Simulated scan of single mutants.
Amino acid sequence: MTTLIEQIVGDLGDKRRWRQYKARVKALPASYRSAAEAVERYLAYFGAITKGDVPVDVMMAMLEDLANLFEQAAADSTPIRAVVGEAPVEFAETFFRKYSDGGWISRGEDQSISAIERGFYKEVEREIAKERARLVKAIERA
């Protein structure tokens, strides 16, 4: 049974997990932190917009694994390019697909969408392209 506070503000466990994840990323060395934040931003945008509502527990597991990956890389002094490879967008999308249960489909694949929805998804694709460019630049700077 949930408490009244949890009903009003949401699951407190998820909020704790989010704060712990953000603290872990903040503790990373600057270049690893900026790379992790760029991948996080892309995953959140790519996953939430194009793949539908990603369950919070799935998103948190994904982000916690991302933090583990960058923490281990920093501890081993592994270069960021060795972690994400030459194609950081492909890395992020592959990383996301690892957590996909097949239940999320790209809305652009549905043939029955209206003209308004098609316009919306074109705008989403433009925004995703911008995020891809931001991710690549962040990795290059890191």
Rank of each mutant, 00 (worst) to 15 (best):
residue 4 L to T: 15
residue 4 L to E: 09
residue 4 L to G: 07
residue 5 I to L: 13
residue 6 E to I: 06
residue 7 Q to A: 12
residue 8 I to D: 00
residue 13 G to H: 12
residue 13 G to R: 15
residue 14 D to P: 00
residue 15 K to D: 06
residue 15 K to R: 10
residue 18 W to S: 10
residue 19 R to V: 05
residue 21 Y to V: 04
residue 21 Y to G: 09
residue 21 Y to D: 07
residue 22 K to M: 09
residue 22 K to L: 08
residue 23 A to E: 12
residue 23 A to D: 13
residue 24 R to H: 11
residue 26 K to M: 09
residue 27 A to S: 13
residue 29 P to Y: 04
residue 29 P to H: 08
residue 32 Y to V: 04
residue 32 Y to H: 14
residue 36 A to C: 15
residue 37 E to R: 14
residue 38 A to R: 01
residue 39 V to F: 06
residue 42 Y to C: 00
residue 44 A to E: 05
residue 45 Y to W: 14
residue 45 Y to D: 00
residue 45 Y to P: 02
residue 45 Y to K: 04
residue 45 Y to E: 03
residue 47 G to E: 00
residue 48 A to I: 02
residue 48 A to P: 02
residue 48 A to G: 15
residue 50 T to A: 10
residue 51 K to Q: 12
residue 52 G to P: 00
residue 53 D to Q: 12
residue 53 D to H: 12
residue 54 V to I: 10
residue 54 V to A: 02
residue 57 D to Y: 08
residue 61 A to N: 11
residue 63 L to Y: 07
residue 64 E to D: 12
residue 65 D to I: 00
residue 69 L to P: 02
residue 70 F to E: 01
residue 71 E to S: 11
residue 71 E to Q: 14
residue 73 A to F: 12
residue 74 A to W: 08
residue 75 A to N: 08
residue 76 D to H: 10
residue 78 T to C: 07
residue 78 T to S: 09
residue 80 I to V: 15
residue 82 A to M: 15
residue 82 A to C: 07
residue 82 A to R: 15
residue 82 A to P: 05
residue 84 V to C: 03
residue 84 V to P: 01
residue 88 P to A: 09
residue 89 V to Y: 11
residue 89 V to E: 13
residue 90 E to C: 07
residue 92 A to N: 06
residue 93 E to S: 14
residue 94 T to Y: 11
residue 97 R to F: 13
residue 98 K to L: 08
residue 101 D to Q: 10
residue 102 G to L: 03
